[in-house]
Nucleic acid binder design. Sequence first.
DNA 1: CACAATATACCGCGATCACGGTATGGAATC
DNA 2: GATTCCATACCGTGATCGCGGTATATTGTG
Lengths: 220, 220
Amino acid sequence: MKTRMTDAENPIAVIVVEDDNIFRESIQDLINESAQLRCEHVFESCEAALDLLAQDYAPEIILLDIDLPGMSGIEGIEHFQKLSPASRIIMMTIFDDDDKIFNAVCRGASGYLLKASTPENIIKYVSDVVGGGAAMSPTIAAKVLSMFTQYSTPRKEYGLTGREKEILQLLVNGMNKKHIAEHLHISQHTVDTHLKNIYAKLHVHSQVDVVAKALKERLI
Amino acid sequence: MKTRMTDAENPIAVIVVEDDNIFRESIQDLINESAQLRCEHVFESCEAALDLLAQDYAPEIILLDIDLPGMSGIEGIEHFQKLSPASRIIMMTIFDDDDKIFNAVCRGASGYLLKASTPENIIKYVSDVVGGGAAMSPTIAAKVLSMFTQYSTPRKEYGLTGREKEILQLLVNGMNKKHIAEHLHISQHTVDTHLKNIYAKLHVHSQVDVVAKALKERLI
DNA sequence: CACAATATACCGCGATCACGGTATGGAATC
DNA sequence: GATTCCATACCGTGATCGCGGTATATTGTG
């Protein structure tokens, strides 16, 4: 990995996309007070920022608010990456909202920071990202890790029998009761019984619920 | 969230599990030089540490090497969590090996740091974790994020309208058509119509299918 | 302004489902 | 040897669903 040489003569170009005037300006000032970073362009919306990137301006770092009027920061990630693949994106968020962070994480930003972070931390996060790493507030890091854990581990055990798991699998794969019965060479009534038992064990009352629960909790 | 009161009289108990003598002792010294942290027990192996935890000793933080002779740190995570659920675990690793980090992440540790981290950073990571967050070296954070991106399905677009997405969401959350109608203050027939349109766009023919598809492809 | 897309609303039929039963043979466990 | 658990099988009723219609008001776009 090539190390980026920076100094006051050769600063790292940062842009800020943030709709709140006060926060936008204060973060710009903060960046320009730092020796290695420089922020010449700030924007109130993704649309405005994309206009500039379309003219071959490629900042190294894009600080991007998650909640923006018009195109949201989350939607914006893909557009920015398309216009300027070398730019690295750091999301900014007021609240550590699970869903939004999850969506942003999946779209490939390089950092996530809470707006409540201290100025020193913000500068540090940006520097980490320039150095090839990723940066997250500890709070957000905890969310990200918990999402990971949720994805792999949480297989609770509901005491399903082998046959019941088999039927659950087929159901999730899109078969209805009739097809399951045919596929397993048993009667529909038997499938009925198994399904009833599955409902009882998972505390649900319909095929929709059971499929949703199985997929959400990765039981299958 | 209750804030943990700490001071020199009431330090946070940390244990270290690390087979390298020099690193183990140096990190113990480092911790004991800090005002809020104290490390009275260090171990060369998971087995030895688990012996102590079995006797009702519950440290707040466990610094755990990933590569250990005998039971590895990754295997150890589950055992430590079982014996002392309140303890939070921070993994230590020399190399940023993707597979190992992935496995550790999935098992639910609260932090991941490179042994090459500076002493100040190590203390900072521990403090972040005590404060309820998670802590990662920027390098490891980048790995974790890239794993996330890799795992996320590029969501196809089926051209669902806002209302259709709304109804799909409610369906996945376990509502049936009647409840959806009540919740949205519209008639069941209208829900019917929307559902029909969703089926057409997603090429499915039942609620079960639509829920399965939505969850598998993360449409919601 | 015109046109398309969207959200809304209603009907009826036949298919499917949920769930309350009951029952039997085999395997595992104690 | 007795008991429990499991897989299997069957039935009937009422609820729900899928899908074929038709129709209107609003919103957005050219």
